[in-house]
C-alpha cells in the first residue's frame, strides 16, 4: 500500500502506488517528447532523441521500477504509436534497463553535498547506466544473427553517442531543478 509513516525511504524495489504513477508519468513524458519533439522549435535538426534523458532521470529520482517502466513502456509506446508493434522489442528492453540501472546505481551512492560535484556525478552515473543498459541490443547477435561489428557500429555506438549527449546535458539540468523541489513536495 502506501509508504509507512516511519520509513524514511522506500526499499529499492518497492512497488507502491507512487512507483506506478511516477513510472506512468515518466513513460508518458518520454513517449510524448519522443514523438513530438518536432513541436519544440529547433528540434527538427537535433539528431538525438532529447527525451531519452528522462529515462535515467526517472530511474535516479524515483527508483528502479519507475526507471524501468519509463524506459520500457515509454519506448514501446513510441513504437506502438509509430506503428512498429514489437519489431524492435530489444530496444525497449534496453531503454528499460537504462532506467533500472540508473535507479540501482544512485540508490547505493551516498548523498553528495557539494552541488557541482553532485551534478558531475549525476551526469557520469546516468552516462554509465546508459552505456551499460544499451548493451542489451547485443541480443540481436543471437536473435537476428547479426555480426558483433555491425551491432557495435550500426546499433550500439550511434545510439550511445546521441543518447549520451542528451543524458549528459539534460539529466543534470533536470536533476538540479528537481533537487530543491523533492524536499518540499513529497510526503
Amino acid at each position: 500500500m502506501s509508504t509507512d509513516a516511519t520509513t524514511p525511504r522506500e526499499p529499492v524495489l518497492s512497488l507502491s502506488s507512487r512507483t506506478v504513477v511516477y513510472g506512468a508519468v515518466g513513460a508518458a513524458l518520454y513517449a510524448v517528447l519522443g514523438l513530438f519533439s518536432f513541436l519544440i522549435p529547433g528540434t527538427q535538426a537535433v539528431q538525438v532523441r532529447p527525451a531519452f534523458a528522462l529515462v535515467p532521470f526517472f530511474g535516479k529520482r524515483f527508483g528502479v521500477i519507475a526507471g524501468l517502466f519509463t524506459g520500457l513502456v515509454g519506448n514501446a509506446i513510441i513504437d506502438l504509436i509509430s506503428g512498429y508493434g514489437l519489431t524492435y522489442w530489444n530496444w525497449s528492453v534496453a531503454n528499460g534497463l537504462v532506467g533500472a540501472l540508473a535507479g540501482l546505481l544512485f540508490a547505493y551512492l551516498p548523498p553528495i553535498a557539494n552541488e557541482a560535484l553532485r551534478l558531475v556525478v549525476t551526469a557520469l552515473g546516468a552516462l554509465l547506466a546508459t552505456a551499460v543498459g544499451l548493451l542489451f541490443v547485443f541480443t540481436d547477435i543471437w536473435v537476428q544473427g547479426i555480426d558483433v561489428t555491425t551491432v557495435i557500429s550500426i546499433n550500439y555506438l550511434p545510439a550511445l553517442i546521441s543518447d549520451a549527449i542528451a543524458v549528459v546535458i539534460l539529466v543534470p539540468a533536470l536533476d538540479a531543478i528537481w533537487e530543491p523541489l523533492s524536499k518540499r513536495t513529497g510526503r
Binding site: L33, G42, A45, Q47, V48, P50, A53, I169, I177, L181
Partner: peptide, 27 residues
C-alpha cells in the same frame, strides 16, 4: 548539438516538473 539541447530546457524542464508535481495528487 550541445547548444541545441540546452535550448530545449525551457520546454523539457517545466513539462517534467509540472507532471511530477501533479503526480503527487494522482497518487
Amino acid at each position: 548539438p550541445v547548444r541545441r539541447l540546452l535550448s530545449l530546457r525551457p520546454v523539457v524542464v517545466p513539462l517534467t516538473v509540472n507532471a511530477l508535481i501533479d503526480a503527487e495528487d494522482t497518487v
